[in-house]
């Protein structure tokens, strides 16, 4: 079923193995959501059941309860090298930002602290181009400046599967093995491979989460999709944006742009 997924998967495995070979030390952000969990599954495929680098949750302590429970179960079942990085409090964030954007900025600062401490040269993240227009411009290997900023106006050329993998000291690279996947692809793949997912994605009382973020800035959307097949069917017909339940994307025209340029996933 869905053979085209083999092609998407193969490309992701190639990218994951490139990252492991060329960038050291390396870590992967695991937000416990459907995308990074599918990505985690592919990491295990790439390394024959192993996860050869730490998985990091940028923890705001504001994730939904089901998310924490799901993480604990998978860490145990799959014997995962899990690591949590507590994000600094909201009071410390830039006061000029609108409230939800400010809350989201906590993850950016958490990541900055993590990089400072662990000196990671590469961070694998499960973002996709179809999620959001800013992310559509991303590279597979996306360099960050010394300050952690994304210089989206001057990105390296990237073609023929040759990536920019070397950097001056102090810089790091974000690696995006899922960039070419869509939300629908991820669900079809999750179904085909029988990958576990947080039950909050399934509709209860006419509502479900399409995208999981912190409880203060993420909201369920109207849906009757109570099974994974329902979700796939819903996505094949819907015209509602995936991140429509994410408050920070909409506060101002450039909220997300400002978040990303300063290091947000």
């Amino acid at each position: 079923m869905y053979q085209y997924l083999d092609d998407l998967e193969s490309r992701s495995l190639y990218i994951i193995r490139e990252a492991y070979k060329r960038v050291d030390p390396l870590a992967m952000l695991w937000s416990i959501g459907k995308d990074s969990t599918a990505l985690l599954w592919m990491v295990r495929k790439a390394f024959y059941g192993r996860v050869p680098f730490p998985l990091v949750l940028l923890d705001t302590e504001m994730e939904l309860d089901e998310v924490y429970a799901f993480r604990d179960k998978l860490v145990k079942d799959w014997d995962l090298p899990m690591k949590s990085e507590l994000c600094p409090p909201e009071e410390d964030m830039d006061k000029t930002l609108p409230p939800a954007t400010r809350a989201a900025m906590r993850k950016t600062e958490g990541l900055r602290n993590l990089l400072e401490k662990e000196k990671y040269r590469g961070i694998i993240a499960g973002i996709r181009r179809d999620e959001q227009a800013m992310r559509a411009k991303e590279r597979v290997f996306s360099p960050r400046t010394l300050d952690g900023d994304w210089d989206y106006k001057d990105q390296p050329a990237e073609f023929w599967d040759q990536y920019k993998t070397e950097f001056p000291d102090g810089c790091h690279v974000r690696i995006h093995p899922l960039l070419h996947w869509t939300e629908l692809d991820i669900w079809r793949y999750t179904k085909r491979e029988n990958i576990p997912y947080v039950s909050l994605y399934l509709a209860k009382d006419g509502k479900r989460y399409r995208s999981l973020g912190e409880k203060n800035i993420t909201f369920p959307v109207d849906s009757e999709a109570a099974t994974i097949d329902d979700i796939i069917h819903e996505l094949e017909t819907t015209k509602t944006a995936e991140r429509s339940g994410r408050a920070m994307d909409k506060e101002t025209e450039d909220s997300f742009e400002r978040l990303r340029a300063s290091g947000y996933m």
């Binding site: 179809d130 106006k153 990105q155």
Partner: peptide
């Protein structure tokens, strides 16, 4: 989508859409 592009009315980077 980018602020800078709207202001200049010029596409700076490649983008993808489904």
């Amino acid at each position: 989508a980018m602020q800078a592009e709207r202001d200049q009315a010029v596409t700076i980077d490649t983008t993808q859409i489904w």
